[in-house]
Design a protein around this nucleic acid. Structure first.
Length: 558
RNA sequence: CCCCUUGUAGUUCAAUGGAUAGAACAGGAGACUUCUAAUCUCCUAAUGUAGGUUCGAUUCCUACCGAGGGGACCA
């Protein structure tokens, strides 16, 4: 039995001794480690019922607890009546021995299959910051869920139909750009999009082009396919850089036609209605918004395609338990409508699809808008960060390693910025801050991981074998932090909040660095040196594992 | 006008209804001939406003104020 279970058991008996039957004591992990390893508020919670003040109740409970065998060295009463438990040192030592590459894995979701769809870029358009954020979040969620025992399928859904296509194709022809040059295509798209707004003739041409794309007219297909190839090649390069990979790439073109069919089926069942020539889902009947699914021109909009995509996922992964889609919060209410319609149309899929939103990237001191011309693409953000890292790295690492290390560190900086805070809240992008690799940052954690690994390697050279067999009388903050990692990982998976892991890793790094500054780890004449080396090794393992959960690599050197 | 989200040091973020609200950056003072100073140590500094629920509220509820997003043929 785990210490927490033993303590809860004893608390139940102690409360029963005081005349409270069927109590469900809550055992907390105090945020402040000085308050012990576990804490309970039972004295405060039951004081009123017992007609005594909380500290008196706490004293009675503690007296009664003395009769039961518990894995603790100390029980304190603190503050208004909290009862704090400090676990046996031996428990922490045993835990340290159990730390390996598998440490922190759970089984909350074992036997489950979870689909995670993320990134969703559009071909012939820039890979923007939203895609970068969705990728970062989706990758981390996928890993957290896998770590909790589930089988995870990594899915991507890429836009290869829609009005952005003819806009880009029109621009490509107008500017006569090289179809193999992704940046030129990006400019061509901007040119086409602008012409569509401001130029009547261009608009007519683009609309005509759109029709040809839908009809797969050979006149445009060659250019379309070549452009698609160029886009997908860039996306693959970015995925490799970001350390992400997908099991299945869906395309809008795969679900386009089926979307129309599904909505028409739904119309017969009375789920959708005709309105002003379009087919809509009357979301207002369910406290949501009414939205168009098929336009008056008979074309399916994103909503309709999403229904077909859901159907396709269910067909390809019939045993899936839950399907997660990550996008920006701006699409939150839209997904509520889509999933409501889906549940009515396909009752067997009701409740199995969910949307998880990241916040929007905002420029500090203003809004990012294409009109203001301060839009940063995801690609340019990554490359500018990598360049900055490379420049600051100077002579720190061997010249042949700098390119790879700069990539790992630059990507970590941007990923950490996205994952460090709770979901849904907007992320303020501050250039100066994002270029700072100190303190509360991904590179800080990476640095700590590299540093801990390095000291273990040095110890090996010095002939010290890591071991927990000879250990100090009392364990410190680092040992206690390490013991909490599995709970943090499980909680992050359960709440689908990667930032719990990010916060934990910063705290662990800080505890380790502080310890590192005051201890001489390698000392061949010190009987405790093997313990300290083993502890550094454990920290190295947990930092690497935690960073993996965030989708961040540990560089070979820093 | 309606709906959703959000408001914590100068700034960017934490805090499963609990204890002295925790970090980082910025500012001030220190620490590298010593295992990686992208580090460490110390100091200054915050819960939008008004009510309510509770033994206890940054957290839950109501109103107001501010910010972001959504609201039929874009995604």
């Amino acid at each position: 039995m785990k210490p927490a279970e033993q303590i809860i058991d004893a608390l139940k008996k102690a409360l029963a001794d005081l005349g409270i039957e069927g109590a469900e004591p809550v055992l907390e992990r105090p945020a402040d480690m000085a308050h012990g390893d576990y804490s309970t508020n039972v004295a405060l919670a039951y004081a009123k019922q017992l007609g005594k003040n909380p500290r008196q109740v706490a004293e009675s409970v503690v007296a009664s607890l003395g009769m039961y065998e518990l894995p603790v060295v100390k029980i304190d009463i603190a503050g208004p009546g909290f009862i704090n438990f400090r676990l046996n040192e031996g428990y922490f030592i045993e835990n340290l021995k159990s730390i390996d590459e598998e440490y922190g894995k759970g089984n909350d979701l074992s036997g489950k299959t979870v689909l995670v769809e993320y990134t969703q870029p559009n071909i012939l358009k820039p890979f923007h910051i939203g895609h970068l954020m969705s990728n970062t979040l989706g990758e981390s969620l996928a890993r957290l869920i896998e770590n909790a025992g589930a089988k995870v399928e990594h899915l991507n859904y890429q836009g290869d139909v829609g009005l952005h296509i003819p806009k880009a194709l029109w621009g490509i022809r107008a500017l006569d750009v090289d179809i193999n040059d992704i940046h030129a295509i990006g400019k061509a798209y901007a040119h086409g999009a602008q012409a569509y707004e401001n130029d009547e003739q261009a608009k007519a041409e683009i609309d005509a082009l759109n029709k040809k794309v839908y009809e797969k007219d050979p006149e445009v297909m060659e250019l379309y396919e070549a452009g698609k190839k160029t886009s997908l090649k860039l996306f693959e390069e970015l995925y490799a850089l970001l350390g992400t990979r997908f099991d299945r790439y869906y395309f809008e073109s795969e679900v386009f036609a089926r979307g129309v069919e599904l909505v028409n089926e739904g119309k017969e069942k009375g789920i959708f209605k005709e309105s002003e020539g379009a087919v809509v889902f009357p979301g207002e009947d369910y406290g949501l918004h009414t939205r168009v699914f098929i336009t008056s021109k008979g074309l399916p909009v994103y909503e309709a395609k999403e229904l077909a995509l859901a159907e396709l996922k269910a067909k390809e992964y019939p045993d899936f338990d839950i399907s997660i889609t990550t996008t920006a919060v701006e699409q939150e209410q839209y997904f509520q409508v889509v999933f409501k319609a889906l549940g009515l149309l396909k009752p067997e899929l009701d409740g199995r699809f969910t949307h998880i939103a990241h916040g929007m990237m905002q420029i500090s001191g203003g809004k990012m808008s294409s009109r203001l011309g301060n839009v940063i693409t995801g690609e340019s953000l990554i490359s500018s960060l990598i360049a900055e890292v490379q420049e600051r790295m100077g002579e720190r690492v061997a010249p042949e390693l700098t390119a790879d290390v700069a990539k790992d560190v630059g990507v970590a900086a941007i990923k950490y910025t996205v994952l460090r805070q709770a979901l849904r809240k907007n992320i303020i992008f501050d250039e100066e801050r994002s270029l700072s690799f100190e303190g509360d940052s991904g590179p800080y954690i990476q640095y700590t991981a590299v540093r801990s690994r390095s000291v273990v390697a040095k110890a090996k050279d010095a002939g010290i074998t890591p071991s927990f067999d000879v250990h100090p009388e009392s364990v410190g903050l680092v040992e206690r932090m390490l013991e909490r990692f599995p709970e943090v990982a499980q909680r992050a998976a359960q709440e689908r909040e990667p930032h719990h892991v990010a916060t934990y890793l910063i705290e662990l790094s800080s505890a380790f660095n502080s310890w590192y500054a005051q201890e001489q780890i390698i000392d061949v004449d010190d009987a405790l040196s093997p313990y300290r080396v083993a502890l550094a090794d454990a920290v190295s393992n947990v930092l690497a594992r935690g960073l993996w959960l965030l989708g961040i690599r540990v560089p070979v050197a820093m």
